[in-house]
Design a protein around this nucleic acid. Sequence first.
DNA 1: CTAGTTTGCCTAAAGGTGTTAGGCAACTGC
DNA 2: GCAGTTGCCTAACACCTTTAGGCAAACTAG
Lengths: 189, 189
Amino acid sequence: MAYAGLNAERLTRAGAELADEVGFDQVTVSELARRFDVKVASLYSHVKNSQDLRTRIALLALEELADRAAEALAGRSAKDALAALANVYRDYAREHPGRYAAAQLRLDPEAAAASAGVRHARMTRAILRGYDLTEPDQTHAVRLLGSVFHGYVSLEMGGGFSHSAPDTQETWSRILDALDALLRNWPER
Amino acid sequence: MAYAGLNAERLTRAGAELADEVGFDQVTVSELARRFDVKVASLYSHVKNSQDLRTRIALLALEELADRAAEALAGRSAKDALAALANVYRDYAREHPGRYAAAQLRLDPEAAAASAGVRHARMTRAILRGYDLTEPDQTHAVRLLGSVFHGYVSLEMGGGFSHSAPDTQETWSRILDALDALLRNWPER
DNA sequence: CTAGTTTGCCTAAAGGTGTTAGGCAACTGC
DNA sequence: GCAGTTGCCTAACACCTTTAGGCAAACTAG
């Protein structure tokens, strides 16, 4: 068979698309090979193994997400920034469910430290500059925001809110209001 | 081989233990057969297929979790109840990570409606009786609590908070304080 | 108590995924 | 043009899933 022009980056991108189509845990080296019209073993020159492929997809998703977040945060502060960041996560998860799932992959510490995960943490912290929080409350608040964003998005995507009445969009916006109010009025110990 | 005394319930329980040991997505019919010292095909008389087994484990986890929650909520209200329910989720996830992951499995609508998931929703709503919220804010608040609990627990288990300074226990308790404050002072539209 | 039925686990087999080892042909640099 | 490298291939093995059909133990009825 002729040269298919495989390389780690193309495989990762195709893997990300595959994840969005069939779900991250259905991403398989075999299916990827099929899409490139290439034998399975050929992929192993470019990617260490299945786990390596998944990790690359996860890192890609984290990067994309961080890029979107950085752009959304530019020029905004306080509640404006809070809503912008929150919407980046939610919209990304809706547009790219497989990639979003990938971004949740547990990375080993070194990989995590080198990933865009640290940018995410920094950006969340940056939002809090618009509120009057000092350490360690700032860290507590960062963790709260991360929990709410991730928790809400993952429950909404999982259909957890689908059978009940009020619009999820309405809930989302009320939750952002509530978080804003909470951060402006953070309870002291 | 002699009778091993297999049935769906024993398989489900063993599957749940296996999940806690090796992770929910590593739960395999083959490994389960090995543990019962039985051939793989034998399991298929008791369980429809691998997906069916996973679903049963998920339902078991949801039940266990709901039972714990019900017990924890008895006789408590307001912040006391809030913290009790939150701790049930967190503790369960720590004691039974595989089961907790299983509880997150996406169920088809009929299965979900018949599951203990509805008890969870009711209990979360019950907590809000201790606060002064009317519909639709009550539903928004239910969703917020679900998001925070699930989001925090899943980030903490995934190691998302492990490389930073303040104790996660401290953060957890401050987040519960913050949620209590927020519910007591829910922002009107 | 025995004959028929059911139950419970088995063997066999086929298909899919993951992974490694080794081969051959096309491209690259000198 | 030749040597080395690159890029994809075939072959083979291990493991998981699932279905089909068999056999013997255990139950049930008369």
